[in-house]
Each structure stands twice: as C-alpha cells, then as structure tokens.
Amino acid sequence: MTLQRVFDPKLNTLNALRLLLAISVIVWHSFPLTGAPHTAHPVTQLLGEGGVDGFFAISGFLIVSSWMRRPKWWPYLQARFLRIVPAFWVCLIVTAAVIAPIGVLLSGAGFPADFVGEAMRYVGGNAGLRVVQFGIAGTPAGVPYPDVWNGSLWTLWWEFLCYLAVLGLGLTRLLRFRATIPVIFLLCLAVVVATGAGAVDNFYLVNAARFGLMFFAGALVHQLQHRLPARWWLVGVAAVIIVAAAFLPDYRVLAAIPLAYLLIVAGALLKVRRLRLQNDISYGTYIYAFPLQQVLASAGLYALGVPLFAVLATVFTLAIATASWYAIEKPALRLKGASVFRMRRHAPAVVERNPA
C-alpha cells in the first residue's frame, strides 16, 4: 500500500501531530526558561530542534500538495498569508499590550520609562514576519532568559520564505520537472554538511539550508508518495534512524527524510477518529507558548523545575491557542473567498482540514 493510497487530505492526523510537535517545543523551551542545565547533545537535537523541523517537513508535504491541486498564484498566496499573518499580528499586539505588562507587574520590577514606545516598536518592527526586536525596554527582567518575550516567532519568516520558494518554482514551472525537488534537497543537504564541517558559518545560509532541507524533505515525500510504501514497520525503522542520527553533529544529515516519512506516514495511517482534529490549534500553541512561559517565569514559577513548569505552561498555552483559533485563525481562513481578497469571482473557499 503506497502513501498516496492511504493518505486522505480530509481524514488524517497531521493536525494532532503538529500539536504534539508544538508541545514538544514548550517542553524544550522550559529548560532555558527555568535556567535548567543544558541537556545532552542527542536530547538537544531531538527535543530542541526536532519539533520545529517536524513542522517544516509537514508543511513541505502540504504546501506542495496545495500548489499541485490548484496552481494559481493569487489563491495560493492568499491562503498562505491568511494562515500565518493575521494570528501573528494579533500575537504581537497581545504580547505587547497584555502579556508583557502582566509579566512586568508579576515581576515587581516596575515599568521602564520607555516601555510604551518600545512596545509599539515591538509590534511595528516585527510586523513584517522577520523578527528584529525580541524584548521590550529590557523586559522581561529578573528571569533566567531575559529580554526575550517570544523566542519562537523568528522561524515563521523562514517558513514563509519556503512558501514563496514553492510559488516561484510553480510560476516558473520548475515543479513540473522531477529533478527539481531532489536537487534543491541535495543542495540544502550539502550546505548542512559543510556547516557541520565548519566550512559555512553564515547565519542566513545556515538557516536557509536547515529549514529548506526539512521543508523539501516533506516535499520529496509528496513527490514520491505514489511509490513510497506506507507501513508501520517502516515508521519504526525511520524512528530508529532518527534516534541514531541524534548522536551525529547534525542529525538532519541522515534523519531529514526519515523524520518527514515518520510524521507524514503516521499521520496517514493513524485511524483514531479522536486524533483527526478539525480545529488546528498547533499554530496558536507555537506562537503563544514562549511569551506565556515568560509570564510564568516572571512570577517566579521557574523554581518549579522543568516538568511542572512545562505542564503548567502547556495548560495555559492550549487555552490561549484555542481562543486564537476560534477568534482569529478560523475566521481569517474564511476570508479566502471574500471580495477584498479575490481578483475575480469564484466560489467561497472552505476552511482546510490541514491549513498549512
């Protein structure tokens, strides 16, 4: 049985897996945000980087699939914008106007004189997805990880660049060639290997290669889905490879495709209906977790230690993420058929089960 035959775009568990990945990011961030000692290198790779890498791999699969189903630049760009940007903007505003002030009050340090101006710059300066300001007037202060309100948002810039890369490849018709995705994957892999060898040390090139490698690993799984067997024992083999690769300087060298395969095939094979989440709160979980964790740290709760801190942060974050989905993200996705966003009349769009 191939992946193409078992994967149902409307009935799969990729949303549940993305939520699990977002929660893994909460657990990982609980180490630096509580001042806990660094973990062993394999744990750092799997827990510290695997969650975000998994997001990119699933996105690569879904985004390429989205373009292939409907290779129209405006609906594609509109869908990507509405999925990412409105909730991102609201998160910036909520962080600056609500979360950060609460954190400052809980810390008992008092508001810096330039807090309001810096809060406005935090929103305006970061509104273009590329995060250039992480703290607000030196806050949060008195916490193990100071002057950073949201250490997760910076990856969204790279995510959107991957979306634009697919758009560019689609418009130039390069996606029609079978060699395009494998060649891009191999180029990214070469840079990742060169980075590990110390030959490459450029922030932009290193991150472009890292995120591009994972995104196009998912895209490669999509391209080969008509040939890839979907079997649980192969998912197990992929998991073993990933764990073994974690002992390498960069686990992605061997684990990029196995990680993409594991997540996408598991999402296709899992038949538990309760895990087929129609409401995708993984994005809200990802963007709100860090600032909420910093509020808990500002209240001194970092002293609870990693396990309790992570559990408490997860509970609060899931509540806010659910509100973000129903109040911001889901309504934004319904705008895909609105006249202000369309260039010519067409039928109203519906909310995707796996909006990426």
Score class of each variant (00 low, 15 high):
82 L>H: 12
43 V>W: 04
123 V>Q: 01
92 L>F: 01
110 G>T: 01
16 A>I: 00
68 M>E: 13
329 E>Y: 03
129 L>D: 09
223 Q>V: 08
285 T>R: 08
7 F>G: 05
246 A>I: 00
10 K>H: 12
54 G>A: 08
246 A>V: 00
268 A>Q: 12
19 L>C: 12
324 S>G: 06
1 M>D: 01
267 G>C: 06
280 D>Y: 03
181 I>A: 07
268 A>G: 12
160 F>C: 12
19 L>S: 04
166 V>F: 11
146 P>G: 12
218 G>S: 03
91 C>Q: 03
202 N>W: 09
37 P>R: 12
334 R>G: 15
88 F>Q: 01
64 V>R: 14
334 R>P: 05
104 V>K: 10
109 A>S: 15
155 T>R: 13
140 P>V: 07
115 F>P: 04
208 A>C: 08
261 Y>M: 04
79 A>F: 04
346 H>I: 04
250 D>E: 00
277 L>Q: 08
211 F>L: 14
142 G>W: 01
203 F>S: 12
53 D>I: 05
126 N>T: 06
134 F>L: 14
287 I>M: 07
346 H>N: 09
134 F>W: 14
132 V>A: 15
256 A>S: 14
133 Q>L: 12
217 A>G: 13
108 G>R: 08
92 L>C: 00
257 I>P: 00
351 V>Q: 05
